[in-house]
Structures are given as structure tokens and as C-alpha cells.
Amino acid sequence: MKNNLVFSHFLPQKILQFVLAGILLFGFTACFYVEDPSEPIYETEYSPVYISRQDLNNSVKFENARPLKETGKIFMKGSYVFVGERYEGVHVIDNRNPKSPENVGFIAIAGNVDVSTKGNILYADNAVDLVAIDISNLPAIKVVKRVEEIFSEANQVLPPDGGSFDYDSDKGYIIDWIKNE
């Protein structure tokens, strides 16, 4: 009689485990997606935008205000707020009246991703170069120092999808990417 109790208790538990395993197995196999060969496959590719050395050296300048699109780092210096625009430069916002900030200009810096300030100097990556820009007399900015190719080719602007690419140094420096379908 004792053996029958153990066996009757054991049997439902084994059946339950078997049923649960079957449900799990079915659940996992139901997750597989089989691609329909008749459906077109779209892959996103990016093409690099190159700039020559001469154009890179002349790319830092103060321009008219433009709409904010793909913003990045934000920092404040005096009564101005600076807002990074990925690969393009820095927006200059006059914040003397915080209730009504005014977009007053744009510091174009080709291939720019990051900026920082110390005193009246804005430090920025300009593709592979590091530039120091005097911002003490806005809008009359001035590049006070440029360290060429301080950032290696490997640190250049990478494709948005993180994919690999063939860098063609004969074309110049990569400052942005264009999306192709």
C-alpha cells in the first residue's frame, strides 16, 4: 500500500512536468519567423560625407540661427546656453530672459560631436582636429588654436548603424553620413 501512495503521488507530477515541457517547446518553436522569399528586403546603408583639409580649416564660423534638429550636449556660459547639434556645430541661445530664450546664432563646426568650455574658450572636435574657439565676443568668434589630426581616423564620425566602412583618405575627412535605402 505504501508503494502505491508514492507511485500515485509521483505519476501526476511527472505528467504535469511533461505537459509543461511540451507547452514550453511549442511556445519556443512558435517564435521562429520564416522569411518569405517573395518579400523585398530593405537594408539601410550610409554613405560618408567627406570634407577636404582646406574646407575643414575654414569650417568654423558663426552663422545665422537655425532650427534645432538632432541635439546633444547642453551647457551654459554667462547668459548664453549652448546646444550641440550632432555633426554640425553648436546653437547659441541668448538666455538673458529665461522666460523667453532667443536662438541668436549657430557656430558651425563640421564633424562636431562634443564640446566643452573653460573660461571664454570653447573646445570642440572638428572631424579629426581639436579646435579652441574664443567665444568672449559673440558673434565675433575666433579660432585661437587648431591641433590637426589629434583624433585618429578610427575616432572619426562612425556610421549611425555602427557598421563597418571603407575609409578613403584621398577624399578627405568624414564629417557626416547620408542615409541610403
Rank of each mutant, 00 (worst) to 15 (best):
K2S: 13
N3D: 13
N4R: 10
F7A: 13
K14L: 15
Q17R: 13
L24W: 09
F26V: 04
F28I: 12
A30K: 12
V34C: 02
I41L: 12
Y42G: 02
E43A: 07
E45Q: 08
E45Y: 11
Y46Q: 07
V49T: 10
S52K: 09
R53L: 13
N58P: 01
S59C: 01
L68E: 11
K69Q: 12
K69L: 13
T71N: 12
G78R: 10
V81H: 03
G84W: 01
E85Q: 12
R86H: 09
R86P: 00
V90K: 00
H91W: 02
H91N: 04
R96K: 12
N97S: 05
F106I: 00
A108R: 14
I109C: 06
V113E: 14
D114F: 09
N120M: 11
Y123N: 10
D129E: 12
D129S: 14
V131W: 10
D134W: 09
K145G: 03
R146N: 09
V147D: 04
E148S: 01
I150K: 01
F151R: 11
E153L: 05
N155M: 14
N155W: 08
L158C: 03
P160C: 08
S164L: 08
F165K: 06
D168F: 00
K171I: 01
I174W: 03
I178M: 06
I178Q: 09
E181R: 08
